[in-house]
Design a binder for these strands. Sequence first.
DNA 1: AAGTGGTCTAGACCACAAC
DNA 2: TTGTGGTCTAGACCACTTC
Lengths: 241, 241
Amino acid sequence: MQNSIVEKLPRYEQVRYDLQQKLIAQIWGSDESIPNEQELADEYQVSVGTIRKAIDLLVADGLLVKQQGKGTFVRYPDFSSSLIRFFRYRNSTGKQIIPEGVVHKVTYLENGDERINGVMHRLIQAPLIYIERTREIGQKVLVSEKIWLPKEHFFQLLNIPLSNFDNLLYPMYRRECGQLVVSAKEQLSFLTNYFDTYLPLQQTESAVKICRFAYGINGELLEYRESYGRASEFFYETFIH
Amino acid sequence: MQNSIVEKLPRYEQVRYDLQQKLIAQIWGSDESIPNEQELADEYQVSVGTIRKAIDLLVADGLLVKQQGKGTFVRYPDFSSSLIRFFRYRNSTGKQIIPEGVVHKVTYLENGDERINGVMHRLIQAPLIYIERTREIGQKVLVSEKIWLPKEHFFQLLNIPLSNFDNLLYPMYRRECGQLVVSAKEQLSFLTNYFDTYLPLQQTESAVKICRFAYGINGELLEYRESYGRASEFFYETFIH
DNA sequence: AAGTGGTCTAGACCACAAC
DNA sequence: TTGTGGTCTAGACCACTTC
């Protein structure tokens, strides 16, 4: 709270910021209730209304959920609206299947990558970690992913054996590296003549390319990811407003 | 306010609903200031805080904007995030060009259309208005659109000559039919072998199909629209969270 | 100086959940 | 019954805009 950065901000923004820091530091576990509004009001020496406003902001951010009569709970974002979840796959009974994430390669690019550091707005030679990953159903590759991470935030991943990588990466980022992804930008385009080691396409087959920029709680870019899949298998739904 | 539908709702929801109705009825013009918070509090016989909460909801909905020191203003949604605005077209200098909407046909389907009434969850034979429209740059067709509207809400359009249709349809819906579109759902998929009278594609060319369901302020379905464009010209960007 | 929205308080009472 | 968040009030003072 005594941070000079936040000194001129409204009290509810200061409270919000402090609660946010505690959420990153995992003071409270997932799906665990945080202190009630009166306790927080006493702790921060503000009125309950001010606490409510701070909490409402974090709820709007998807970091907290409120349940009347029970309490306010931690809820880390799940990216359920991510485009890459929209590749349609169903089993023989018509049910949607959730693909398995498989990490094939994790390497350290000491001198970075010019193109990638460019799109990430970093210094050309800034070191990167590079990951190749697929999403599969059975043995069939649904999506091929190339992932680049700033080495300074994710060096811990280099010591983890491939077989120990989780199905989902974002919870791993948080657990192993203390990096919490809370928002992202995704760009979708359509490619012809795409070749990928992991994703065999017919000569005439088209691909969907999704570029994702994933951001941390303070808006810093944590990850750049390119995902490729079959255009014919893609179906995307979005809500405007 | 004395509407039975809203009797059990919180005061701020009742106020919100009433203000919403006034916005639809165009009590205040676009970009005109609505009464200040104290005046509204007096009018509705609630405290200023309750008025603020109602207004904040309408701001979150994109129907109002607040400006400190000036007032609160009407701001009808503009659908700037619509997928179909993401067909990439640039002129020779690299600037993005805004396509022109051209209405080619407006017809009355007295007995509806089985497939369309199905996806719109209406009775199979419910009457529809059908519109064919393109979005063009110069003489080049960028997007071909098929639009279906419930006849009961849009019959006024049948009396308007094609040449009098505006570049944008939603402001027309509001002006001519009193129907305000505030939200939408869009579904994107890729097609091969698509044929369209207005959009000539090469034999091997792929198309993007966007199905839009547009909703009114009370959540009722006002429009179903299918838009088709060239896959190679499509670029979509979205923000998650 | 006057008017607007922005922040903040210190309470009251209600509705829901758990024991 | 107790504790939680949900609603609502009636003010105070601040910050920005306009005149």
